[in-house]
Design a protein around this nucleic acid. Structure first.
Lengths: 222, 222
DNA sequence: TCAGACATGTAAGTCGTTACATGATTCA
DNA sequence: TGAATCATGTAACGACTTACATGTCTGA
């Protein structure tokens, strides 16, 4: 039976901000949501088509000079209602599948050295992400301070209607910038938690008297 | 094409500890890994069968007095090798699908009140889990201190060979208790991170001068 | 010139979930 | 008596991923 599809609602939610192409949607998801959500083209485009068929969205060809055609999708009133309703419904618990943690757990019967090696490679990967997130954070924090969204995030956040182009950012627009920022903060705090856990775990695994049947208790700093 | 199956390796890893039934495997996964892994019967039993067919595991009927038959699965040498190799290979990045965060992000264009409401229901769910985890943590911490695993976790961790029954827990057994504990700590730290994030986010959303175009800067405690 | 971003899509395949089915044993 | 736990499985199904296909535009 498989689990309920959320892709349609994710799309509808984004389309209720502004009309977007499939490519746009994919980009927003990658840029802003990648640490807790993903969508593949292979799922995105068919879902988009279904939404149009069922009257939740409309599709209009966007002007392009030659080249591949481009389409903009918009949410219909029906689509907005469906989105609205989904927002009110209780959410599934977060689904996580962490292969590294699984491996760590399964090394329980092996040497501490091996467990530590796994944790260290885990840390390395996490640190890479961390750097990237921190840079985005700096950009967004600056944008929040000055009230002006920088070039690279405007397309994903701001409305693109001609008549608001020159106006100062509205409160609504400031709020979506804040939400974007907070979403990123979630990713950052999650990594910080993981890094703290890795340190704590390595310390514990290195401590000699783990089982402490007797013998002097080691300094339990953690 | 779908992504690579890890279920087989998870099973092989557990079977390399000791022989287990399908039901046992499910229980271990639920008890110890549920915050970052899951397996359903509908996937478990067919995979188990495939492993036996391909010579990675063996299946032996276990003695039961009447009632449903019970089978114990064991990893073969081939199965252990496959597991070994998988451990050495690089792991996939963690996959997360968090519907609540998705909703939060998609409320960016709506009222702050609505975003806060979502965060608060999120918090409530997280707190429930947190309580449960903390209780397990206390049990495991006590077990680590005394070196004796309590009744309720022994079946999932300890070897069940008759001749080691009365011996004091070995270093190896102490290590797997520690790993179990650390795995749980991961879940706890993850929740603490989320709770901290929720608090921070609610504070930020309640702060009046979010966009701070001008006007006095609010005390930015976060 | 050539990599990378922009842009849209299809085909194939499966992993994993949900719902169903069955029945014994244990304990309050 | 009846709920919970122990215990093993099947049927159906679909959401999603990966790989493939195609072509333009832009800037270093």
């Amino acid at each position: 039976m498989a689990r309920k599809p959320k892709t349609a609602f994710a799309i509808l939610g984004l389309l209720s901000w502004r009309p977007m192409s499939g490519y746009d949607i994919k980009k927003v998801v990658e840029m802003a949501l990648s640490h807790f959500w993903s969508e593949s083209y292979g799922n995105l485009f068919p879902t988009l088509e279904r939404l149009v068929e069922q009257g939740f969205a409309t599709r209009t060809p966007a002007p392009t000079e030659g080249g591949r055609p481009k389409y903009l999708y918009s949410a219909t009133a029906k689509g907005r209602r469906a989105f609205e309703q989904w927002i009110q419904e209780p959410s599934d618990d977060p689904q996580v599948r962490n292969e590294m943690l699984l491996k760590f757990f399964l090394t329980a019967r092996r040497s501490a050295k091996e467990s530590i090696r796994l944790l260290e490679s885990f840390r390395q990967k996490q640190l890479q992400r961390y750097e990237a997130y921190r840079q985005s954070e700096a950009v967004l924090a600056e944008a929040l301070r000055t009230g002006a969204a920088p070039r690279e995030i405007v397309p994903f956040i701001a409305e693109e209607t001609a008549n608001t182009k020159r106006k100062p950012r509205s409160t609504a627009a400031a709020k979506d910038l804040l939400v974007f920022f907070l979403t990123l903060r979630h990713g950052i705090l999650a990594i910080e938690g993981r890094l703290a856990w890795i340190d704590e775990s390595i310390r514990a695994l290195k401590r000699p008297g783990t089982r402490s049947k007797r013998g002097p208790r080691q300094g339990q700093t953690a």
